[in-house]
Design a protein around this nucleic acid. Structure first.
Lengths: 259, 259
DNA sequence: ACCAATGGTTCATTTAATGAACCGACGAGT
DNA sequence: ACTCGTCGGTTCATTAAATGAACCATTGGT
């Protein structure tokens, strides 16, 4: 691994539960030498990717990442485009909707919308890491990802977030085949208890899956009517988002729209 | 300069006018060896910071920066906090408002709001680079930055974006003194012609200036009434934003509020 | 007063970065 | 069809930078 990759890998230890990390913690987390971590973090700091708090000298992500994200959005405006799609989707379904994107071998939730219709909602956080198994978004992505990638994921130890999480690779493979037939993934309580969620894949111009669009509802609210309405709205929203970012679904993606 | 800094410096060549850059262009822009650029970009690509387009193999910023920006916002929610402040400010003034943040020695516009009141508006782009001289935001930041930093900026060649741009360092120093007295910066046509803008500095918990909040209006709409209303609204908005991000103004910052 | 943390620094050793030259492919111009 | 220039990508001897064990100075808790 090159020096640059090592430095950037240090940034992967930041997450919602850990927005600030001290030098020693970072050394332990990364397994690198303390002097190495110190110098790498210094370089990252000089470039504005991280900054040190005045109080306890712990590191946190720096303002430079905001500039880069704004430029990424200028080049590939997937988040800004998704916001309108998500708003419409939440309005239509009355439930929380969110977009997750595949980044390397990690799936991150990066944009979401709520519906004002119901007081109880499934809450979302941006940049939250989703597991592939157990989430409808993860399964939707896995079903349309490179087979090698899917197998790599399934060959790793699969933890159970809830008692309902399906962790048997064979059962998951069977589910993935089902998703490829229907074009939509469903998960009931596999990631958070009592959350019923649907997801459809989103594709780029090379017809590769780049993420998933999902609707998450409290299981108690999943009436027969909603079980019809949500998948239909989601399919439409997925097709819209894929289209608006210049993407195309692969030839084998089931289209039940009269487009 | 370390390898990591070199790699990250490659990312600085991306901007609104240049969202995709090929290997050879990047080599020329950076002045580095082509093989070096190639390997550095490969590492950045492996980490998801850049990606190559399938069509012409040019590089553009990758999805990983979105995750980092979301986490930065989770740690220091300045953009999300600013959005409400900007909306209120634009509603109140009827004009375009925007927030710019100091990143290293560069000032970037990173969040903005429009008012629906008027059909003609000053348009803004996120991640746009602002000059220090000639913009009200830049002058507001410079007035409260470290004196060394201000002098470094003023010692560089100062270009004139418009015939009205003031480029004489002595005149600028005099203006900065005036801004420190009043707490607000004004620019008329110094960056874009016929744009009249006001700006106030924004401070962090260490009482250091981190950026500026500004209102930009077509010069034709700057009535006597607006010349009263905008500075007043801006001062209030600046104090609110500084406060909401946990910051404090330095002791010598003029407070004309009965707080 | 002590101990165990913390962030930060040093310097001989090792390892990785570097760059000139090279390759094959593509496209424009003749 | 042939060059010419440029593109992205690759090679390998040379060089420069990254590394890590040990060390220092502070801090906070007992």
């Amino acid at each position: 691994m090159g020096t640059v990759s090592k430095a950037l890998s240090l940034l992967t230890f930041f997450n919602h539960g850990r927005t600030g990390i001290g030098l020693s913690d970072l050394t332990r987390l990364s397994g690198m030498n303390k002097a190495t971590v110190y110098r790498l973090m210094n370089e990252l700091q000089e470039s504005g990717f991280v900054e040190q708090t005045g109080s306890d000298r712990s590191y946190r992500l720096g303002p430079q990442v905001l500039r880069l994200a704004a430029l990424r959005e200028a080049a590939v405006p997937i988040l800004s485009v998704s916001r309108q799609v998500l708003r419409d989707l939440s309005d239509e379904t009355g439930e929380t909707s969110h977009l997750s994107l595949l980044q390397g071998s990690q799936l991150n939730s990066l944009s979401h919308a709520y519906s004002p219709r119901n007081a109880t909602r499934v809450m979302m956080e941006d940049a939250k890491v989703l597991t592939f198994h157990g989430t409808s978004s993860g399964m939707a992505v896995l079903a349309y990802a490179e087979p090698d990638f899917a197998e790599t994921i399934l060959s790793q130890p699969l933890g159970a977030r809830t008692p309902e999480t399906i962790t048997d690779p064979q059962k998951i493979r069977a589910q993935l085949a089902g998703i490829r037939k229907s074009g939509i993934a469903v998960s009931v309580g596999g990631f958070e208890e009592d959350v019923h969620s649907h997801a459809v894949p989103v594709f780029d111009p090379d017809r590769k899956v780049i993420g998933a669009l999902a609707v998450a509802a409290p299981a108690s609210r999943m009436t027969a009517e909603q079980k019809q309405l949500i998948p239909a709205a989601l399919r439409r929203a997925g097709a819209t988002l894929t289209h608006r970012i210049g993407g195309s679904a692969p030839a084998d993606y089931p289209q039940d729209e009269t487009a």
